[in-house]
Design a protein around this nucleic acid. Structure first.
Lengths: 231, 231
DNA sequence: TTTACAAATAGTCAATTTGACTATATTTTT
DNA sequence: AAAAATATAGTCAAATTGACTATTTGTAAA
């Protein structure tokens, strides 16, 4: 499309970094890759890379994430731009960070491209990363904490059918504190956001819980009428 | 600092655009500049321009806004990056948008640099702008609407000492609907966020209202204790 | 110098929502 | 058959909301 630049040429002052949160076993993880080449070879960092002239920034984020980790088809949301002069050691690089929240169990990791490895790290056991990646991660986590209280986020990272307790575990993991069970149930159910499946949990060694599903249509109907999700 | 680039050289694939909301006379305005040169000469657009190698992205936003409009010393917040492939006509340009909310009466406009003029436009009388500037503005307004319900925003755009009615007018202008006066007062005062000045409004042709001020310290104390501002 | 107006501030009250609980139900393992 | 584990239901006082009405305090017009 553009002027004299080749399509696959990269914009060298601009990069992408992805903050991918994964939830499983009641814990929050973060997806990191090990650099297989370049100035940070051998170090763990946020998956990221360079934007090409022929792709949108959003598309670059999705492409990079997929090629580095194998994770694709997830809803990547833009977080913010980090643009301090000295954030990158060898030249001026401004980065656009992206964020997503997924069910870690739904994805097989396939390290590729410039990544020699890809791995989920517990959020509280993240290594020191190059550049300002630890700052970006921290910003992403704060954003997540804020967001979870104001939007019905996180349903995409549970199984299609889930129990109320599973949502509560997720919320507790993100907010880092416990919530009263009966009150949490009541609040969530009163929003009329969840549809009860006529089905129960299986293979548990105690009373089986009802399964629910999150209905996007209902959510959009409600929000259009002025409904505001608040934890 | 950097490699082979001169300090004042610009990063040519990356620009800044500022969405500056102004409030006065109970109305929301937006600050635009008229391009005095370049491919959009003569058209009104968001104040913006190019980032230099020796300045942070945040600093570039502040510099550009000041040089184009004369408006300085305001709190500019990053909005988001707009990065579609064809958003700019002659080459690939990704833009970082910034946002602020100010009291329009507090600033004298001094068009400069590449701007031949600078003017406040009523938010509902914004002309068609080049590139995706109308989209950026719309995004900024949505952001503002969301933000005003979750953060005590906008106190910086009222005079230091203000009446409860002035805040209400501001909120109504942003939210585009009326609010019940006694209830609004009650809710706001019960947050213990406002400090009553022992002073009254002057030069009004009716009962003078008490003046209040917003105390950032109190706000930060409250938020640290888990207080959440909700309209 | 009343009287009308305009806006600030105060108060009411039923309905809803919260927060902190207790009680009961259902299923599985001992 | 009892114990254990967890789901689900229910209670209740306190706080908050939404929709109002009432009163106060000041200017401006008659």
């Amino acid at each position: 499309m553009m002027s004299s630049k080749h399509s696959s040429e990269i914009i060298d002052a601009l990069s992408i970094d992805c903050v991918i949160f994964g939830f499983r076993h009641g814990e929050l993880d973060i997806l990191l890759i090990k650099h297989g080449e370049g100035i940070s070879k051998g170090r763990w960092a946020l998956p990221g890379g360079w934007i090409q002239y022929n792709e949108s920034v959003d598309a670059a984020a999705a492409r990079l994430l997929k090629s580095l980790t194998g994770v694709s088809n997830i809803y990547l949301e833009q977080l913010r731009c980090f643009g301090d002069v000295n954030r990158y050691p060898t030249k001026r690089v401004i980065t656009i960070s992206y964020y997503a929240l997924v069910n870690a169990d739904h994805y097989d990791l396939h390290p590729g491209f410039t990544a020699s490895d890809a791995k989920w790290f517990n959020l509280h056991e993240v290594p020191s990363m190059p550049y300002d990646h630890n700052d970006i991660l921290e910003f992403g986590f704060k954003y997540l904490k804020h967001k979870v209280r104001h939007e019905p986020i996180g349903f995409n990272l549970l199984p299609k059918k889930f129990t109320l307790h599973q949502i509560q575990e997720l919320y507790e993991a993100i907010l880092e504190h416990e919530l009263d069970k009966p009150n949490f149930r009541r609040k969530l159910l009163n929003m009329n956001l969840l549809v009860p499946c006529q089905e129960k949990q299986k293979d548990v060694s105690h009373r089986a819980a009802n399964l629910y599903r999150f209905d996007k249509k209902i959510y959009h109907q409600l929000t259009e009428k002025g409904f505001a999700f608040e934890l």
